[in-house]
Design a protein around this nucleic acid. Structure first.
Lengths: 207, 207
DNA sequence: GTCTATAAGGTGATAGAC
DNA sequence: GTCTATCACCTTATAGAC
């Protein structure tokens, strides 16, 4: 079902070179916009050589997507039902923001895929992702019922955390174009803002 | 500087047919992913005929982009300094959400463009968009200083409104894949959530 | 394992008849 | 204004020498 297993050290190394280059190219050009020429040039290998390690352009892309989705959901998996509710949710948002800072290419790869209708990853969304989200939404819902956080729609809360945090990776060009920072990072301000946003939203005693 | 002016009624009609079809195709495939064949088929015209009305594929795309950016910013322009601060900001968010509901293709067109580095619209972002955002951020900042809303970073507040609202258009496939609605709309829940989110964020008396 | 050469099909754009 | 035919280029993928 998966790609052939790498055997030698050089095979392993070259496969990683290709995936690293492909992440660069696919994340900024999308699947259709990327070319094997670009990936080959970026990886330092020849085009036929790239196709020696992966059977097709699509094989590289789907390999990237599937191995990334797992890591991408780690922050949500880490949301625990036995912690302090507001801390758990705020920390989740901050972990997601940290992912946008550290792995913007991965975020944009997913963004490209989803904006274009998720033709190659829809199954994963309606399966594993959906289940995980529903499980965590139930946890949040319990906190809400118990009065430990202000009443809130758990699914839309999760969507808002995704969108506000991934925005700093996916729309990075726009954010920087507006804030016009000469190299300085806006992530600290974003962090402060998001902490405030979700603390105020969830603190009990709101309407 | 712009395209040739349409003269006859049939020219006007065909140009609109093409732009409408192009919006469909570009918004789901991105610039590189879209083909003239698709646009021609979708518009009901032949491929050479499409190129009779627009000099190139790129001409269609840039025409779409520039005429859309203007409408896209209308909700922000409508934010007035002499209204009730919280109402103004919440209403702005709701207007943006309404745009996502009514014009998801336009939202995705921009999303595709920005995620891929905004190669054809960066000037507009660093120019008119930046100026408008800074002007409105100043208004919000004044409200904050006057104690009429809780202290908040105005730029990141605007970013969060963009991201949370456009998410329902740009990541529509994901949202529906998770909520799994059999045709029923989730926009009402989104509306309730966003109203809550920004009301709680901005109500004076928060930490 | 890596290369050059090339096949095979797609794609943007133009020519020229009507 | 619209069509058919077609060019020139790009892109994925394979063949086969080394």
């Amino acid at each position: 079902m998966s790609e052939k297993q790498p055997r030698t050290r050089i095979q392993q190394k070259n496969r990683e070179l290709i995936l690293e280059a492909a992440l660069d190219v696919f994340s900024t050009e999308g699947f259709r916009g990327a070319t094997l020429d670009q990936i080959a040039a970026q990886s330092g290998l020849s085009k036929p050589n790239v196709l020696y390690y992966f059977s097709s352009k699509e094989a590289i892309y789907t390999q990237l997507l599937s191995q990334l989705l797992d890591t991408w959901l780690d922050p949500l998996r880490a949301l625990e039902s036995d912690g302090d509710p507001i801390d758990e949710i705020v920390d989740y948002a901050l972990r997601k923001l940290e992912m946008s800072r550290e792995f913007p290419r991965e975020s944009r790869l997913f963004a490209n895929e989803i904006v274009q209708g998720a033709p190659r990853i829809l199954d994963q969304i309606e399966g594993p992702l959906r289940d995980l989200v529903n499980a965590k939404a139930a946890v949040i819902s319990d906190w809400s019922s118990a009065g430990r956080i202000a009443p809130v729609d758990p699914h839309h809360l999760i969507f808002s955390i995704w969108s506000t945090t991934q925005h700093y990776a996916d729309f990075d060009v726009q954010v920087r174009g507006i804030l016009n920072p000469e190299g300085e990072s806006h992530f600290n301000d974003a962090q402060t803002f998001l902490k405030l946003l979700y603390t105020r939203l969830l603190s009990p005693g709101a309407p």
